[in-house]
Lab assay of single mutants.
Amino acid sequence: HNLTITQGKLFFHYNPKLCLSEIHKMEEVSGTKGRQERNDIALKTNGDQASCENELLKFSYIRTSFDKILLRWEPYWPPDFRDLLGFMLFYKEAPYQNVTEFDGQDACGSNSWTVVDIDPPLRSNDPKSQNHPGWLMRGLKPWTQYAIFVKTLVTFSDERRTYGAKSDIIYVQTDATNPSVPLDPISVSNSSSQIILKWKPPSDPNGNITHYLVFWERQAEDSELFELDYCLKGLKLPSRTWSPPFESEDSQKHNQSEYEDSAGECCSCPKTDSQILKELEESSFRKTFEDYLHNVVFVPRKTSSGTGAEDPRPSRKRRSLGDVGNVTVAVPTVAAFPNTSSTSVPTSPEEHRPFEKVVNKESLVISGLRHFTGYRIELQACNQDTPEERCSVAAYVSARTMPEAKADDIVGPVTHEIFENNVVHLMWQEPKEPNGLIVLYEVSYRRYGDEELHLCVSRKHFALERGCRLRGLSPGNYSVRIRATSLAGNGSWTEPTYFYVTDYLDVPSNIA
């Protein structure tokens, strides 16, 4: 807008934040220059609390790290170098490059900038070799853009010569660093050979998330399962459950009422301010606690030095998902009996873990797994792929695949051998790939016309006998059925096997 004052003059007093240069501009645009008398524009009460600059400061050096910015700028000295009290560095987070010096300023003089007072450097006698002032900004957020400017702080001049310097606002972004852990990993099994893994992005990506790394490792069953005799009275049979499938998407929606109208769909109840505040506090606490764990609990591995020492970490090797089922080394339970199943799973520490690289999504279907087997899954978020990966501390989750139908069934015939004193040795093959492992066998036998009897055969007993022995049988026709019990439950009964026990007292003698 054009402003013209045809008559009258300007009068400025007691404006401590208004620089004289701005008042002189007002004289020019209003056409009143030359009308004012000496005392109409006070030299001592206008701009006496402001830094009124008329020179431009330029930054000469900028260096960044993930949490620091090192700045240096060209030296500046007023005509009387004693008038320079120091520099004021202003900075704040700036997602967009549209910041002005006066953003967030209120009537009390406060604003949204963080201000650092910096002492002037030592003055050199040689004007050509003056030290460049600077400042190291610490405690910054990774991968965050900051708006920065600097200006001088000078003393009051009796001659009211307006001098000083100020830089333009520059924008500097800190470097990326390792992201925080992925949030809320959930693993479920939808079949006997697959596990579905879902997660949420890290709360602090500290860069642009480029991919996720998912490692999985087959877990050995508890050692007590191999040692305890679950045929003993009072000892509860062990059981394991597989990871249940995901709930429906509708039930997972946030901010939804727990109660549904019987007449149909209901609208979600909005969260109160107290609920939102509580969630923010919980989120802040979780982030602080995660940072504490990362800094205190997890110790970084030592990389190899120039002395030739090897990095103890196993090298990563990509495998196809079809090879995942046989990740671990199978060892027989008892070496003397080769027909026992290889369900003991000690994992070799030198073995390469299978892994998958996930790009542009937060889910993965891990296939080719062994049925009813526990897996430990390790999830890392990465925001750099080359020249070397920059990934987060791992988040861990466990899951067990679903049982395989008929995996616990005894394959092959049940054979028998009759000894003296009416002892019958029953023999059968253990299931080759049971659900988890076989903890015991149930032997059901009966003599024709009598009630059915049951015998429990422990895992250890089966390994020693290759089956079991029935003792003290009365003469007669017998039928026997056997079924295995694994961590997933009972298998199917075998087809009945028949044998006849004679009275050993009636056996004919070869003595003449």
Rank of each mutant, 00 (worst) to 15 (best):
H211R: 11
D503W: 09
R218W: 15
R218Y: 15
L464V: 06
S363E: 15
P314Y: 14
R313W: 07
A407Q: 12
S283Y: 14
N383R: 04
E442Y: 02
Q275V: 09
H416Q: 11
E465A: 09
D250A: 11
E388C: 13
P349Y: 04
Y441R: 01
V331L: 11
K317D: 13
V439A: 14
L505T: 14
T241M: 09
A488Q: 15
A395N: 10
P338E: 07
R318F: 15
S239M: 03
P346K: 07
D204T: 02
F372H: 05
H211A: 05
L426M: 04
E265M: 08
R218F: 04
E430V: 07
A263Q: 12
K460W: 11
P508L: 03
Q252S: 10
D506F: 09
L232S: 08
T494G: 02
T303N: 14
F226W: 04
E247V: 11
D323L: 07
D506E: 04
S268K: 15
H294T: 02
D503G: 02
R481T: 03
D506C: 03
N339H: 10
S315H: 13
P496R: 13
R316L: 12
V507M: 11
N421S: 13
V397K: 15
S474P: 07
C468K: 12
R301Q: 14
F289N: 01
L213M: 09
N477S: 08
Q252Y: 03
D385F: 07
S283L: 12
R400I: 06
G467Q: 05
H461F: 11
S492C: 15
P300A: 12
A484E: 15
V414Q: 06
E378M: 10
L505N: 08
L473S: 02
N435C: 15
E465R: 08
A488S: 07
R319I: 06
P431F: 02
I438W: 04
T347H: 04
R390K: 11
T333M: 14
E290A: 02
S474M: 09
D250Q: 13
T272F: 06
N295G: 09
K406D: 10
E433K: 14
S315D: 10
G436N: 05
E281K: 05
D291R: 02
W216M: 11
S223W: 09
D408L: 04
D273A: 07
T307I: 07
E351R: 14
R469K: 06
R240V: 05
D323H: 11
T288G: 05
N477F: 09
P205E: 04
R471P: 06
H352Y: 13
E282P: 02
L225N: 04
L379F: 08
P475W: 13
F462S: 07
T303F: 15
Y504V: 05
G467L: 07
